[in-house]
Computed example of a mutant assay.
Amino acid sequence: MDAKDWLLLRILEEDSAQELREVADLAGLSEAEVEDRVRTMEDEGIIRGYCASIDWEKAGEGVAAATVNLKVNPERDVGYDRIAARIARFPQVSSLRLISGEYDFELRVTGRNIQEITRFVSEQIAPMEQIRETATILVMKTYKESGRILYDRKEGERLPFSF
């Protein structure tokens, strides 16, 4: 993968719904080159799919989110993989990462409200045999996600400067 592919991936990651012409202009490539490179990266599994960034509040659906950190007892011969595969199957889990530090896993969990999230963690996640400890951190507001700024800013508006 060269620098143009890397740039192309960053452009698509920010907004994969852009017109092909816009992507080509931003990447400094022809439309045909963009099509070929994207197709190759899709075939090789580098690009695994495309998704929409949704403002659930504007859609009229309240969504609560939390980060759930887990301490886990890894299993002999498979380490963390089996418990990760089990946790990843829950539709409430939108992301799952093996992390370093005090905890082993970091989950992003969503639900219609805080009670739904706490019920999910206490009834589905915490009782698993390999789970030693959970720490749930409620997301109060998201400002940026997947490289995309999620708040509206007026044209030319400057952010306050602070020390």
Score class of each variant (00 low, 15 high):
R97N: 09
T134A: 08
L20G: 06
V34E: 01
D15P: 06
A3D: 07
E102T: 13
V38M: 02
L12Q: 01
S95H: 03
L20C: 11
D55S: 08
M41S: 02
T136L: 00
S53V: 13
R97A: 14
D5Y: 00
D43K: 13
G79T: 05
D25N: 13
A88I: 09
N113K: 03
A27E: 02
D5R: 00
T110N: 10
I11T: 05
I149C: 11
M128Q: 06
E22L: 14
A85F: 01
V68H: 04
T40V: 08
R82V: 07
E33Q: 14
G62M: 12
D5W: 00
K141Y: 04
A17N: 12
Q92N: 12
L70Q: 04
E145M: 13
R82C: 03
I131P: 03
L98N: 01
I137L: 13
V72W: 00
N69H: 12
F90A: 04
E123S: 13
I54Y: 06
D15H: 09
P127Q: 07
I11R: 04
I125R: 03
A85L: 07
D152M: 11
Y143T: 15
I125Q: 07
V139Y: 11
I117G: 02
D81P: 08
E116G: 14
I99L: 03
R112H: 10
L20S: 09
R89S: 03
E145K: 15
N73G: 08
E31T: 11
T134H: 05
I117F: 00
D43P: 06
R10G: 09
E57V: 14
R86Q: 06
R153F: 05
K154R: 15
P127A: 02
A59L: 08
I137D: 11
F105G: 00
E44Y: 12
F90Q: 01
V68D: 02
M1S: 10
I47L: 00
R108G: 13
E106F: 04
S16E: 01
D77T: 14
L159W: 10
I114M: 11
R21F: 10
W56K: 13
I114E: 13
K154C: 10
L107R: 00
L26D: 11
L98Q: 09
I131K: 06
S16K: 04
E57N: 14
A84T: 05
K58V: 06
V38I: 10
R148K: 12
Q18T: 02
D36M: 14
L8M: 07
I87G: 00
D77I: 07
K154A: 13
Q18I: 02
M1A: 11
R97D: 06
R112Q: 06
D43S: 07
R132M: 10
D55F: 06
S100Y: 11
A135M: 13
E57R: 15
G49C: 03
L8T: 00
F90R: 11
M1Y: 03
I46W: 00
V68C: 04
Q115K: 15
E129A: 15
V23A: 12
G147C: 06
V72R: 01
T142G: 08
L29Y: 01
R89A: 11
R108N: 12
L9V: 02
P91H: 00
I125A: 05
E22A: 09
I137N: 15
T142H: 10
Q124Y: 08
R89H: 07
D77E: 14
T67I: 12
R153E: 06
P160L: 06
N73V: 10
G147V: 01
I83E: 00
